[in-house]
Each structure stands twice: as structure tokens, then as C-alpha cells.
């Protein structure tokens, strides 16, 4: 069995342990089924919440097995599941014999009111996470709220359960509960405070800021003296916090590494001006410092060494992991065939155009390129329109078997391309995508 399977089993065991232990060693007091369900919802829901801190803490062992984007999606799904269970907890207790007063009365003991507050904060936290984009909540603001609410919810839930949870009178459950509580708080403090502090003590230096095309910049970073660039796979990404002074914002963001790992003196990310923070990226100057946490991601041709024929589909700035892979193939003289389908709005938006042409002139990799423009100018003689099933068929010359597809770009484009590829008979296992947004 793969390590990811073992980790998933461990995850389930950690979550269900309190319920199992309570069922085995707890008292049978003749409660109703709904009451017992309500209690189990709390035991499971709280464990799910506690483990959230570990899922999101960027641990390499988890990241290597699943990929960071997948972990964060899973974290989100589990957050929703925890809310459902923890809303079910008071409802089922009330229906199972506790009475409606449990839900509506406000003159309840502090440990019940603490749980109500915790549940309210949890609902707010999950709603903000799901709808952050729709209500245009800025990433940094959302993250600060998330970082304040999450530990508060855990603390409120912990004290509520220690005071009122009858199953926590079973010694093994009580111990387990306390150990998990201390552990997740420690993980949270490490992830949000200790590790950033450690990283900030060894800052990287900006050595280059280059404009690629309109609103797209490549920032090159050099490791601290005496330190080499970390080992990474082409296509992986890094978390960067720029410290630029001059009143420019200090925020941590993640960007794909667009440089080739075959060149070890520096590392580069190509960044598009998309939001409030990235709008300032062109104001970064050589000599500025940055904190770097890397590498992350499972989107790399190096993870599938047996593949010989690859199709890259890039939408706009989604070219970054793919150019990293093409550069690596060039530098290592890889014996591979690659078809690059590169979609952009206009001709002026095609980043790395000359470099891609030069790679296509060589033999390593054997690269052919299709530029597809949705809004080309009058002088454009190449492909025009949006990538669809018919175009895919034509560009791939109706040959889909034995090829592996790497897609990176805006989510609607990726979703449409995945659907089209499946209709054309490409197996799930041969489609790799990078989930572009994490929230």
C-alpha cells in the first residue's frame, strides 16, 4: 500500500478513536438513539476540527503524499463536514431528550454558551472561506480572520467538552482529547509563528525583476550566503513574502517556480498582476529581500518518469509550471515529445514566446507549439478561438492514446478541457491538472 493510503487510514483512526473508545468503555445509561448520535457527532466533529490544523500546516510528509492544493481542498471539505456534525450535535441532543430549551435559552451555564459561541464562530469561519471570493474579501484579511477564529473555536470547544462531555470522564478518552488539543495548538503556533520566524532569519535576495509581457513579471531570487537553492521539481511552487520597504505590502503568496531546477544558482517565479498585492510586483527591486518556503506541488512531468509523449495545455499565466518543465527538459536534454497548446487573449499576452520558439528549434525536447488566441489582432494568421473538443482533436491529430496531458490555466478553461479530453477517451490517470486557486 502507498504511504498516502496509510496516512488516510491514520487520519480516520485519529478521528473515530473517541467514538470507538466511548462505545467500548462508556456507560450505557439508556439514552435515546438520537441523544447518542448527537454525542457522537460532537466527538467526531471536534476531532475533525482539531486535525484541520495539521492538514493546513504545510508538512512535507503530507504534501509529498497528496500535494498541497489537494490537502487544502480536503481541508475545506472537512471543515464543511465538521460544521454539519457540530450543528447536528445540539439539534440531536435537543430532539433526543434534551428539549428545545437547549437550543433557544440564553440563561444556560457558561460552558454551554461557550459552545454556542464556538459554533457561531465556526459557521462564520466556514462561510467566509467558501464565499471569500464572492464577497471580495481580500486574501490577507481572510487569512487573518481564519487565523484568529480557528484557534478560538478549538479552545471554546475544548473547554466545553471537558466540562460537560460525559464520555470525557473515561480516562483514555480524556487523555486523548487533551493530548490532541495541546498538539494542534502547538502545530498552529509552529506553522503561523515559529516557522515564519525561522525562515525570516535567513532571507533570500531579489537579483532580478524582468517584465515578460504586459502585467507579467519574472522575479529572480538568490539564496542566503552559504545556502544552495533547495531541490525542487520543475512545475512546483513556492511561498514568498517580499520585504521591500517603501510602504509596499508584506504578504505571503504562492507562485509557481518558472526557472529550471537544473540551474542551481537562483530560483525565479513569473507573476501576473491580478490582485491588489500582485499589482505592486513590478515595484520590486534587486536588493530587496524575501522569505521563501518551498518547494510544494505535485504537478511535474518528473513524477511520471515512464511517459514519453506529453501534451501541455496552458491558459495565459498558466504557462509558468509548463515553461519550468520545458526549460528543465532543455537543460537535461530530455528525450521527450511535447505538444504545447498555448491559449492567450492577444498576441501581446504570449509570455516566453521567443524562448519557446528557441526550445522548439532544438531536439530536446521535440517540441511543437500551437498558439491559440481568443482576441487576435488583424495581422494574426495562426489559430483563433477558444480551446474546445474539435480543436483538441485537430491539434493532437486525433491521437490521444499513450499521451499524458498537463493542464494549467483559469479553472473554467481547465474544467472544459478535462471534460473534452474525457469525451475523447483519455483516461483520468493521464490528465494532470494544477488547481489554480486554493480558496
Amino acid at each position: 500500500m502507498k504511504r498516502s493510503h496509510w496516512l488516510l487510514i491514520l487520519y480516520l483512526l485519529l478521528i473515530i478513536f473517541p467514538v470507538l473508545a466511548a462505545a467500548l468503555w462508556g456507560s450505557r445509561m439508556g439514552n435515546s438513539f438520537l441523544w447518542e448520535m448527537g454525542r457522537n457527532c460532537a466527538l467526531t466533529g471536534f476531532m475533525l476540527l482539531a486535525l484541520q490544523a495539521i492538514l493546513a500546516a504545510r508538512f512535507q510528509v503530507l504534501e509529498r503524499s497528496f500535494g498541497f492544493d489537494i490537502l487544502i481542498r480536503f481541508h475545506k471539505h472537512m471543515g464543511v463536514l465538521a460544521v454539519v456534525l457540530l450543528i447536528g450535535h445540539p439539534l440531536l441532543l435537543a430532539l433526543g431528550g434534551g428539549g428545545m430549551g437547549l437550543l433557544v435559552n440564553l440563561d444556560l451555564p457558561w460552558y454551554v454558551m461557550a459552545a454556542k459561541l464556538g459554533l457561531l464562530l465556526l459557521i462564520v469561519n466556514v462561510l467566509l472561506s467558501i464565499f471569500s471570493e464572492r464577497i471580495r474579501l481580500k486574501f490577507e484579511r481572510w487569512r487573518l480572520t481564519h487565523d484568529l477564529l480557528a484557534p478560538a473555536i478549538i479552545v471554546l470547544g475544548f473547554f466545553h467538552s471537558r466540562r460537560v462531555g460525559s464520555d470525557l470522564r473515561i480516562p483514555i478518552v480524556r487523555w486523548y482529547w487533551t493530548v490532541m488539543f495541546v498538539l494542534v495548538l502547538a502545530v498552529f503556533i509552529y506553522h503561523r509563528w515559529i516557522r515564519p520566524w525561522q525562515l525570516s532569519r535567513r532571507p533570500w535576495k531579489v537579483t532580478g525583476v524582468k517584465k515578460e509581457v504586459d502585467r507579467v513579471w519574472t522575479v529572480t531570487l538568490e539564496p542566503p550566503k552559504g545556502q544552495r537553492v533547495f531541490d525542487y521539481l520543475p512545475g512546483q511552487f513556492q511561498f514568498i513574502t517580499f520585504h521591500r520597504g517603501r510602504g509596499l505590502p508584506v504578504e505571503e503568496h504562492h507562485w509557481t517556480i518558472s526557472s529550471s531546477p537544473a540551474r542551481r544558482e537562483s530560483v525565479a517565479s513569473t507573476i501576473k498582476e491580478l490582485g491588489d498585492f500582485t499589482a505592486t510586483i513590478g515595484q520590486t527591486k534587486p536588493g530587496d529581500t524575501a522569505t521563501v518556503h518551498a518547494p510544494f506541488g505535485r504537478f511535474s512531468y518528473r513524477l511520471r518518469p515512464g511517459e514519453r509523449e506529453l501534451v501541455f495545455v496552458a491558459g495565459g499565466i498558466g504557462i509558468t509550471p509548463l515553461i519550468g518543465m520545458l526549460r528543465h527538459m532543455r537543460d537535461t536534454r530530455a528525450d521527450l515529445s511535447v505538444l504545447l497548446i498555448y491559449a492567450n487573449r492577444g498576441e501581446g499576452d504570449i509570455a516566453f514566446r521567443q524562448e519557446i520558439d528557441r526550445i522548439a528549434e532544438g531536439e530536446h525536447p521535440r517540441l511543437s507549439v500551437v498558439h491559440l488566441l481568443s482576441k487576435p489582432g488583424d495581422g494574426w494568421s495562426g489559430e483563433r478561438g477558444r480551446l474546445d473538443r474539435d480543436r483538441l482533436k485537430r491539434y493532437c491529430q486525433d491521437r490521444f492514446q499513450g499521451r499524458t496531458f498537463y493542464l494549467c490555466g483559469p479553472p473554467p478553461m481547465i474544467d472544459a478541457t478535462v471534460t473534452a479530453l474525457k469525451e475523447l477517451g483519455v483516461a483520468d490517470g493521464r490528465i494532470e491538472t494544477e488547481l489554480f486557486t486554493f480558496l
Partner: peptide
Amino acid sequence: MRRTKLNRTTRLVIVAIVVMIVIPALLRIR
């Protein structure tokens, strides 16, 4: 594809958790 695997995993975890909530509750009311 990893996204499909994620959805499958999420479903598996949800089913496992629901089972582990219902069965112990049934055991305890016996």
C-alpha cells in the same frame, strides 16, 4: 486525475465517519 481522487477520498471519509457515528450509537442503546 488527482481531483477525481480527492472527490473519491472525501466521499470515502464521509461514509466512514457516518458509519462510525451510527453504529456505536446503536451499540450503546442496546
